[in-house]
Amino acid sequence: MIDLLLALTLPLVALGVLLARELFRAVVMFIAFGLLMALVWVRLQAPDLALAEAAIGAGLTGVLLLDALGHLRQPHPPGQPLRSLLPLLTILALVLAGALGLVLLGALLEPLQPSVNLPAEVALHIEASGVAHPVTAVLLAFRAWDTLLEVAVILVAVVVGLALRFSHDDAAAESRVSSPLLQGMLSWLLPLMLLVALYLLWIGSYRSGGAFQAAAVMAAMLVLLRLSGQQLPGQNHPLLLRAGLVGGLGTFLLLGSVQLLQGGAFLAWPEQLAGAFILLVETALTFSLALLLYALFEASPAPARKGHPPRTGDQPS
């Protein structure tokens, strides 16, 4: 019953996101949608995804969107959220969507006949993977190749953000309000968050949790620190910061190559030490991903301040 209700609510909230008149409302509804998704993942018995969805899908994405909204003022009137000038396109899109919906419905209701039972395979090999939690085993042993590349994907997004920052915004010049009260509060909130993050990291070997969820908590911590106007440790050491950004990918590559250099396969973990290697990779990933996720937030081009029109970019000299 609750499943039917939840499954029905999801598209309705999505419709609300798409049809909201004001953009701000749409974003807030989107965050609500993300939290709802987290609930859905719990019902689908995927607690890892519930954690990730709440922290990354709703939390971080929401913060990113809200932050961007703060810098964008609507030059268009708030009404008419959908294209109204091109009725032909609208009809075409709706017809296409209807057709796709029918095909999809047929495909989803078709009886399933999987040729391989992958969950059984996972259960069979989890002993050899070095960790006890199946999702972690898939992410860092069976399909570690995907995870390695995924870290590279985040890094690319951050690099593009860094490349497109206006040349005159340096972090030191931005002064944000700092109140002693907020800082006092942060002084005990932050250690707590750090503990939660480390707990999530550690528990990932046995139960739901792991590098990505821990990193999201840590990134939230950094965002809080930043918003409170605090100087981040290492903020004025660009090289150190860069090293932190690439540290996760670098560690993953290096530890993944240990067996390769001894004639084994890439991303194979040494037999006795698989658990330790995975924990090492996860630890490096946690800290590095936290920085990366935070950098996704921080690296966005800041608005031009008075008297400093943004540079249009590199002009050939």
């Binding site: 995927a46 995804l49 992958l118 969950p119 999702v135 085993a137 898939v138 992410l139 399909r143 995870t147």
Partner: peptide, 11 residues
Amino acid sequence: VDAVPQALVLT
């Protein structure tokens, strides 16, 4: 319950 699609979705 299948850990593989869950891991894929996490990615």
